[in-house]
């Protein structure tokens, strides 16, 4: 199989398979979660909870300042790599083109050199996150195979994308194919690992905000 074959497969059937597994998995997981149901709360709520629950969804984007002081690495590296992923995934011209071609939505891109810099920062912060996970006793206790798998699968697209952009290691076609395949791997494992948090955190924050708001507390 030549590099071009690999690239064509990754851009064609590979992508279709990955997106299908992703869509299948996400819908399945949402069914799994919602099907367990939730008993109606019969206690009289203090306030209408909808707005508060919505507010919690947004408020949890920001850190609690005391916790930030206690665990700065988690927050700084965590924010950095999430922000970096956002920039790299959504503000790089070829990626926008991909989104436009599948969803019909598009927006202006950032200069490639800037995205490149952000990619480096993302990679560095991901490494910091890993080191922190291994050295911090709490994180090490909580971590299992899945945590290291998802770390690697998150790192790979950024790394291969960076390497493809800079023509490192393999010819561009091969590297681009590996880049796309790494994204496809990410899509495939997404619904069945903690990567799913990117979707379910909205549900969780809503529940959290709702539970607290019934009692009159903005959580």
């Amino acid at each position: 199989m030549s590099a071009m074959d690999l690239l064509l497969w990754s851009r064609g059937p590979g992508l279709a398979i990955a997106v299908s597994i992703f869509a299948f998995g996400v819908v399945l997981r949402l069914f799994e979660i919602y099907s367990l149901g939730r008993k109606a709360d019969l206690a009289k709520p203090r306030v209408n909870t909808k707005a508060c629950a919505g507010a919690t969804v947004w408020r949890r984007m920001l850190p609690d300042m005391h916790i930030l002081r206690r665990s700065p690495i988690t927050y700084v590296a965590g924010y950095l790599f999430h922000f970096g992923l956002f920039v790299v995934v959504f503000l790089y011209a070829p990626h926008i083109k991909l989104i436009e071609s599948t969803l019909g939505l598009s927006w202006p891109a950032l200069p490639s050199a800037l995205v490149d810099l952000v990619a480096v920062l993302t990679l560095i912060s991901l490494v910091v996150v890993l080191v922190n996970r291994i050295t911090d006793p709490v994180k090490r206790l909580l971590s299992g195979f899945e945590d290291y798998l998802t770390w690697a699968v998150t790192l790979l697209p950024v790394l291969t994308g960076y390497m493809a952009y800079h023509h490192l290691m393999f010819p561009y076609q091969t590297m681009l194919a590996l880049h796309i395949l790494s994204v496809e791997l990410l899509l495939v494992i997404f619904p069945f690992t903690k990567l799913m948090h990117a979707i379910t955190l909205f549900i969780s924050r809503w529940y959290n905000g709702d539970i607290a708001a019934r009692k009159g507390v903005q959580s």
């Binding site: 851009r11 279709a16 819908v27 949402l30 991909l98």
Partner: peptide, 22 residues
């Protein structure tokens, strides 16, 4: 960077399958 075959159809079918299995 765009897919060389449409993925929307496959994704919708997969999502429906996900709903059925779900």
């Amino acid at each position: 960077s765009t897919p060389i075959q449409p993925v929307t159809g496959a994704a919708v079918t997969a999502a429906l399958a996900g709903a059925a299995v779900g």
